[in-house]
Design a protein around this nucleic acid. Structure first.
Lengths: 111, 111
DNA sequence: ACAATATGCAACCTTTTGGTTGCCTGTCAA
DNA sequence: TTGACAGGCAACCAAAAGGTTGCATATTGT
């Protein structure tokens, strides 16, 4: 098996606000080039953006297509979907239980 | 406004596998003490676990209740729920669109 | 009272992360 | 063919993250 799990790459990729922003911008306008994406993040070099995109690609959150001298970036929402289903879903299902535990604990702490 | 957004704290907290594991274990057995949680992570000092718990608490993913000399940790799934609703939800909704973009791009790349 | 237990605090260390600069490669257009 | 344009690669750097050790503090049971 992998040294780092697939889910871990996705969580780590999503941990950075700049990368979440890149995903947001691809969602709004899919298939942008590196330079187009750079234009939306002033105050950051092209290489920095390129590194973020590489991390997103490693996590399979984006796919790229080379078209001549430019590289088009496409959002792949599948890993986000899987994370939501497999991991967040568990917590969704136990939401009310956990809150009732919490409430009980806080009440008994008041005694 | 805050220097770091609330959502950012949650994403950052979820970025570490040990912390996700702690949440998992609290979900299975809510209200554990620090030492109980340490027992489940062999090969890590109590202080390391304590730091992870502090980060989770900072992100509001757990709430704590002091009970005598021990501190009980309770899962708070609400931030996870909010993340799922506000952020992941957007990507869920655009899932098919993005995939169709991707497919089109890959096809035209084959010409 | 006192020893054991449960946790907190702080300094310190190493690795990872996010970013930069500088230069190289490939592609298009005149 | 020769610039200009889009992007890749590698070295380097500062700051943050993850972890440790050592000591301090508060609570509890005997």
């Amino acid at each position: 098996m992998d040294l780092v799990s697939k889910a871990d790459l996705v969580f780590k990729a999503l941990a950075d606000a700049s990368r979440r922003d890149l995903l947001d911008r691809l969602r709004a306008d899919n298939g942008q080039t590196l330079n187009q994406l750079c234009a939306g993040v002033p105050g950051m070099t092209r290489q920095a953006v390129s590194k973020h995109l590489a991390i997103l690609e490693e996590a399979n959150l984006i796919a790229t297509v080379k078209r001549g001298r430019e590289k088009l970036h496409y959002l792949n929402p599948v890993p986000i979907h899987e994370i939501a289903e497999r991991w967040i879903g568990k917590f969704e299902r136990s939401r009310l239980d956990a809150l009732s535990d919490l409430k009980k604990a806080l009440e008994s702490g008041d005694e």
